[in-house]
Design a protein around this nucleic acid. Structure first.
Lengths: 343, 343
DNA sequence: TTGAAAGCGCTAACAC
DNA sequence: GTGTTAGCGCTTTCAA
């Protein structure tokens, strides 16, 4: 069978070239080759040269798997994001990958599917693949699941939620405060009929938004009752809003994603509600499509790319055992950007 | 140093549990443990039980890296996509990952950055990480780069372009034919002033669209001169179109991405060109945002999810050495979907 | 400055 | 059925 493997390799054209081949070709020991590829400075220039030539000649590429075994580290991190969130996480991923590339880390992508309880499979998988760290977008993972990972003593960075622990750091934007500040301002202007629309795809974001609004109301001596749930029987935000707006209208509506705001926009139009004249509209997260609708939705400029790049940077630092980086909570700032959907 | 490592492990709470620990605990040899975790059926039920208990008790998870070394396979594939294409590739990735999950494959994500010539770095990286296969979205990679990968005899699946070779298969939609058929129909209706707008982010798609249109024109005894380039000085499609439409109008415009169609839509509005009355508009690729604009853009329903899932399935088959799967060109069908932007 | 050799954790002959 | 052992390709002591 060993024979078989080698034979097959022959047939398949070229045998994988290993560190042995290089050592042989260069007439040195494999230890020396190892030193060269790892940039050790004890190797004599002359020897180094020979080895480098051999590497070049043979087209040798170190086997990262073998290195991983020997070194007990894979220079790979796992990224876990909710499936179907690419529209909003695209920039986050780009930021993350750019930094990963610089630091020579590989990224293994895992997605969590809504509703399906296979998260434990993903965790199992992550453990088996011995990645050096895990970056998790959003709160799809419950505390207990995160704890399970944490047990394995593997550094974790959470994107989007403020959390921290011994080996857990987080990078996020304070949505709650963003909404709080906005609502507060409207309240001061005398606007009271404010509604926060639920985002069924992101409970946590919804909760934070509602909390922010509630806090502002509270401070004004009022109580907030404007959290608008989308009943299960409506398949889309648009369908619900279209129905809802036949009998309801508000002064200000807040949505999480721009796509929800667009749905509101269309439903409003259908119901002859003028935006921003009759109702104002703001969303938290937007995409490039927001510059393509009329009116453009006022939103918070969330630094998505940075959310990703900073996370990866934090991860690298944790991996380099810069202890002070552990358990950090890094808040990135947002910027409210008024557009045509507000007065 | 060996001491050191072990000490450190102790300090860091728990020593990684290996197959040896399990063997020890269960009072069998590591070979037997290996057999159990690999589902070999030669193990006696009684023994298997003991081993399974030990695994459970110790919380043992096989080290995929070590397995990879021993087996010469990583059960990991690399996915290469153009950076910033997540809006359109999101569904592709979802499809791919879903199948990968079923087949127990891991996916390493790599992105290619526009203009920057670090593709060779990515290839180098892919080789080093010893993935079992590579799936490439789109034609960012030139033939010579693909050849370089191919040298290593690693199965490749290309998404989006018809290509094939000894170890290369592809999964795609025939955009050229889609445009051909559409243009042909318009020509038959007497519409001649047809323009295909360039997609600077995707030359290949642009080319295919232009080819399709040209073919239809040719068959009608006409020559196609309606390929509209966006000059470099314009940063966005919108800026260009807004200028362009001051002096030009057409009967039918074709864009690749919905976002480009939206730009045209807005520019048209600004220039008092009514769609679809004064001009009709069709795009190839669309996203969920297309259902949120008015008028909705007529488009081709491209099975993005399937593009991903089928690719991964093909990859699995190639990896299982089902020779007949090599060099396959799999065409997925599209469906023209007329909406409000056409008469 | 270099080489020999012992692992890293696992699989798969081969022997019993 | 189960154990022994030789790799898989690399890193890192330890000696020379």
């Amino acid at each position: 069978m060993k024979q078989n493997r080698q034979q097959k390799d022959q047939v398949m054209k070229m045998k994988r070239v290993t560190i042995y081949d290089v050592a042989n070709y260069a007439g040195v020991s494999l230890a020396t080759v190892s030193r060269v590829i790892n940039g050790s400075d004890v190797v004599r220039g002359n020897t180094r040269q020979k080895v480098e030539e051999a590497i070049e000649k043979l087209g040798y590429k170190p086997n990262a798997i073998a290195q991983g075994l020997a070194l007990q580290k894979t220079t790979t991190i796992a990224l876990v994001i909710p499936e179907a969130s690419f529209t909003y996480t695209g920039q986050v991923i780009n930021g993350l990958l750019d930094v990963a590339k610089i630091d020579k880390y590989n990224v293994m992508l895992h997605t969590t599917t809504e509703g399906i309880a296979e998260i434990s499979d993903i965790i199992e998988n992550i453990i088996k693949s011995r990645v050096d760290g895990v970056i998790i977008y959003n709160d799809r993972l419950t505390q207990s699941e995160i704890n399970e990972l944490n047990q394995y003593n593997i550094p974790i960075v959470i994107i989007g939620n403020r959390t921290s622990d011994k080996k857990i750091s987080s990078v996020f934007v304070d949505t709650e405060r963003a909404v709080y500040e906005l609502v507060k301002e409207y309240l001061e202007r005398g606007v009271r009929d404010i509604v926060v629309l639920e985002d069924r795809k992101n409970n946590n974001a919804s909760r934070l938004m509602a909390n922010g609004a509630a806090k502002a109301f509270e401070e004004a001596g009022l109580s907030f009752e404007g959290f608008l749930r989308i009943p299960d029987e409506y398949r889309t935000t648009y369908k619900f809003m279209n129905e809802y707006m036949k009998t309801h209208r508000h002064e200000l509506m807040l949505a999480n994603r721009d796509s929800q705001a667009f749905a509101i926009l269309n439903a409003a139009k259908e119901n002859h509600i003028e935006i921003p004249t009759d109702m104002e509209l703001v969303c938290v997260l937007d995409t490039k499509y927001n510059s393509m609708v009329r009116p453009e939705i006022s939103s918070f400029a969330i630094p998505s790319y940075d959310l990703g790049s900073v996370s990866m940077r934090v991860m690298t630092k944790m991996l380099n055992n810069e202890e002070e980086e552990n358990g950090k909570e890094i808040e990135l700032s947002y910027l409210y950007t008024p557009r045509q959907s507000t007065k």
